[in-house]
């Protein structure tokens, strides 16, 4: 019979077969030994990998849900929400509120349960409840991911308080230890930056925390209302409809926000101290900018 081309696949000799079997066995053992030797390093790399991926997930959640109030870089917005990316937060905050647990627990609990109370709160908005255990949108792993992301600021935050990065509080207003001279590792007194003349309205809108509650791009219509404060996308049309001329109305709303409350919103949400925090010149420029239909960001 003609031997087919694949006849090399026929191994006839039992000795060769046994030899191949033993060789395979040795190879298997060598491979398993190799895996065993690198196993410790592999597990370390995997542990770091999943911690890293958790921070990535947390960053995504933060960018989608938290930055409105706590700021893109986590440094908070005055009157809206405290800074998380601050040395104070990582060193002194737990002492100030008498928290005996870890910072991780503090952050995770605050994210999960929120701060759904206005009593003794200095902030304009309540921290919403995020965990789906208490009616929020996050699963447990998402609460953990956001917490991991927030805690990942520590390395950066600890460098605050130096000359080029002076403010260790970073808009953390309710900070009793601010008055205390910093001990070892505690924040040193803030250096108030020299005022450099009137700030542009774009910057004011940002640093005063307006954007935490007021959306500049969306128009305010019955079907599209800002959830906390009215949208300002079409302010130039709506501002003049309250019995005052538009500029006066907007000016009053900034300086004395409770004088007129648009229907469906609650008094006392918007901070009432903007008149002290901005110069008259700055407020006027802000009003003018807000009423400009073609305003530039």
């Amino acid at each position: 019979m003609k031997r087919p081309w694949y006849s090399f696949l026929y191994v006839r000799s039992p000795i060769v077969k046994i030899g191949l079997g033993i060789a395979s066995l040795v190879l298997t053992i060598v491979l398993l030994l190799f895996i065993g030797i690198i196993e410790e390093r592999r597990m370390e790399a995997q542990t770091a990998n999943w911690a890293g991926r958790e921070i990535e997930k947390g960053a995504e959640l933060y960018a989608n849900n938290c930055y409105n109030c706590h700021g893109m870089d986590g440094k908070g917005l005055p009157g809206v929400a405290p800074a998380l990316h601050s040395k104070y937060f990582f060193t002194q905050r737990l002492n100030d509120i008498g928290w005996s647990g870890s910072l991780h627990d503090y952050v995770a609990l605050t994210v999960a349960a929120g701060r759904p109370s206005r009593v003794q709160s200095q902030w304009a908005q309540m921290m919403p409840t995020w965990s789906n255990r208490f009616g929020g949108p996050f699963r447990d792993d998402q609460v953990q991911a956001v917490t991991a992301f927030v805690l990942n600021w520590e390395e950066d935050a600890m460098q605050q308080g130096a000359a080029d990065n002076p403010d260790p509080w970073q808009y953390f207003e309710d900070a009793p230890s601010r008055a205390v001279v910093g001990e070892d590792g505690a924040p040193v007194a803030a250096v108030t930056p020299e005022p450099t003349g009137p700030r542009p309205p774009q910057e004011l809108f940002n640093v005063m925390g307006c954007l935490g509650c007021h959306n500049l791009d969306q128009p305010q219509t019955p079907n599209n209302r800002g959830p906390v404060g009215p949208n300002l996308g079409n302010l130039y049309e709506t501002a003049g409809t309250h019995g005052e001329d538009a500029a006066t109305y907007v000016h009053n709303s900034i300086v004395n926000p409770n004088a007129y409350i648009s229907e469906g919103y609650t008094a006392g949400i918007m901070p009432a101290n903007f008149g002290e925090r901005m110069s008259e010149e700055e407020i006027n420029s802000l009003v003018e900018w807000l009423l400009d239909p073609n305003r530039q960001r």
Partner: peptide, 24 residues
């Protein structure tokens, strides 16, 4: 016994080695 057993056993051991190699 013994021919087919040796054949099958060595084949399966060889295949196992291949699987471990692929996995590794």
């Amino acid at each position: 016994l013994p021919d087919v057993m040796i054949d099958e056993a060595s084949f399966l051991i060889g295949f196992t080695a291949l699987m471990v190699l692929l996995t590794a």
